[in-house]
């Protein structure tokens, strides 16, 4: 019959190299026996040796941890010696590879004619899988290095002050950036007015605006108002000189106020002029609308999302920068 002690001793020995087991076994048995004796004596209850054994084993703790103390082996996967190098590999590799693979997957599935939902799902799952693969393999290699005691060649140069990162320069918003932003806003406003005033598409000998004229009852004026607000925002931003969290929040809100109705109208087929859709259908035999909607939608979403994120990124950098020149 195997006792708890037998199982505990085996629990320790199995994490020890075989060559050391024979020598270590009597030692661990003596340790456990001593611990049980001490228990039984301090509790003063020799009546129940089972309870004393159990309590003594609890006190000795996880047999694997005890084995690690005996062998001097690290009970961790990647220790402090390699952790820094591990992180310096995992973070940049993941940050570069995962977005690239995701964008390629998204483009490939959309161009392959997959529905938007399915394309997004496959993009997310591919990105996730790639991230897991990177994490697993890099960690695996580092764990092997930890066990075998190989030095990380990445860290083979001793650290010197030359390795210190540069303090990022304060980001004063340049005139160029402000003008670029203004130009984009004005372009959108002009495009909305121009497509109505000088219809670019001719159907049955009659010029037709690209956007549904019914939208002039509310949505197109609304978009024009948003564009005007964007222009005002750019002016405020330029005068302030630097991105802050409140400014980034306003920027993101303006972007959302533009993009969400636009995407909603697009999704529900209310954005384009039905006359133009019919005309192009007749000319091309149809099939163009769905991809056009997808590409337009993604373009709007990506531009607005990037703009919003970029604002916060710059605000973050300004908030976390303590260089003498910023004082």
């Amino acid at each position: 019959m195997t006792t708890l002690t037998d199982r505990y001793v085996w629990g320790v020995l199995r994490s020890v190299p075989e060559a050391q087991r024979v020598e270590l076994e009597p030692e661990i048995r003596a340790l456990v026996a001593d611990a049980i004796d001490a228990r039984a004596m301090s509790d003063g209850t020799p009546a129940d040796p089972g309870a004393a054994e159990r309590a003594a084993l609890v006190e000795l703790g996880d047999p694997e941890a005890l084995a690690a103390r005996y062998t001097g082996r690290s009970p961790y996967l990647i220790g402090p010696r390699l952790f820094g190098a591990w992180r310096r590999v995992v973070v940049p590799v993941t940050a570069v590879v995962v977005p690239i693979v995701s964008i390629v997957t998204l483009a490939a599935s959309l161009l392959g004619g997959a529905p938007v939902g399915q394309a997004i799902v496959s993009t997310l799952s591919t990105g996730f899988m790639v991230a897991m693969q990177i994490l697993f393999w890099v960690t695996f290699v580092f764990a092997v290095m930890e066990r075998t005691g190989v030095e990380a060649t990445i860290d083979s140069q001793p650290w010197t002050p030359d390795h210190l990162p540069e303090v990022p320069a304060p980001e004063r918003i340049g005139l160029g950036e402000a003008i670029a932003s203004l130009t984009a806003s004005i372009f959108v406003a002009v495009a909305i007015v121009w497509q109505q005033a000088a219809p670019p598409v001719v159907v049955d000998g009659q010029g037709q605006p690209l956007l549904d004229p019914a939208l002039w009852s509310f949505w197109l004026p609304y978009f024009l108002v948003i564009v005007v607000l964007e222009i005002a925002f750019t002016a405020v931003l330029y005068l302030r000189g630097r991105w802050t969290y409140p400014l980034a929040t306003v920027n993101a809100a303006l972007g959302a106020a533009f993009a969400i109705p636009a995407l909603w109208l697009l999704q529900n087929g209310m954005l384009f002029n039905p006359a133009v859709i019919d005309g192009i259908d007749e000319a091309t035999g149809g099939g163009w609308l769905a991809p056009t909607v997808i590409i337009t939608g993604i373009t709007i979403a990506v531009i607005v999302a990037w703009d919003a994120v970029d604002g916060f990124r710059k605000a973050y950098r300004n908030a976390h920068m303590r260089s003498p020149s910023a004082a």
Partner: peptide
């Protein structure tokens, strides 16, 4: 031996756990 040593250490105010002391002695 281990446990006697443990008691003596405790006696001088150095409380060590058995699962630390035994591997230490072996080291």
């Amino acid at each position: 031996y281990g446990y006697a040593l443990l008691d003596e250490l405790r006696g001088i105010g150095l409380s060590v756990d058995a699962n630390t002391l035994y591997p230490l002695l072996r080291r």
